[in-house]
Amino acid sequence: MSAATTVNGTGRNGRRGRKEPSPWTSRAVVHAMLGIAALYSVLPLVWLVTSSTKSLGEFSTTSAFEFADWNLPANLRALFSEADGVFLAWTRNSVLYAGVGAVLGALICTACGYAVAKLEFPGRRTLFAVTLTGVLVPTTALALPLYLMASELRLVDTFWAVFLPLLTNPFGVYLARVYAEAAVPDEALEAARIDGSGELRTFFRVALPMMRPGFVTIILFQFVQIWNNFFLPLVMLTDPRLFPLSLGLYQWSTRVSQFPQYNPLVITGSLLAVFPIIVAFLVLQRQWRSGLTAGSVK
């Protein structure tokens, strides 16, 4: 903060150069443009908050960004009681798919990225090359063959059909390799080996703690990736009790043109689905920001 103030100070007082500064870089214009970008980004979310307080009739009688009569409790009650509380099941499923999936997936990626960066073994180069190819394969192109494979293994419409494929995160391996190279010095590994620590123990006790910001970053971004994934559950699942939030809300939204009473449910449900991720990003800000920095240094 103090550094920023100093820079600002010289900008304001120390205009000794003869060149007239461009009006586009004046403080007012810069902040006006930033304000527009921030409004564009935040206003739709403000709409989501104000709309979740409205009853069905108030959508057309009130303007988009104003609060109406406080109808949020009634909307929440309707949301959680709809179809025997299926919304709660969707929330639980999303937490399982994304929460457990992200932690487990990130651990698997980090172990592999660490090994590729720090250990010598046959096939290391091939594995990394194939992993990079995996980054390029679009997930929508994989969904159909995955569905057919799952149907042969009788896994369609089960938890595992969605959970297992989403664990795979080739880009996480790439990031983990970068983090391991930047954050784990060879001397630390050497010292652990001299102390008689086995390789697995060295990874969990020495390397993983050193890679912690990177590890948290991989978890967080894989969490969002799984939380956001829609195509795979759409293809794999038919039992509403197994749906994640995004698929469930989508299914409700397909009914709104016939049954407008789903509108408040869709809107209030969307607010609840977005809320925890925003909180996670704000709370873990320091961690993922430093993780991104480490990733981009390379």
């Binding site: 739709p44 979310l45 989501l48 956001n228 939030l245 809300l249 969307s270 977005v274 990003f281």
Partner: peptide
């Protein structure tokens, strides 16, 4: 912030 909004919900909003 919008990055935290899933694609389905962004589409709905």
């Amino acid at each position: 912030l919008p990055y935290a909004v899933p694609g389905v919900i962004a589409g709905l909003i």
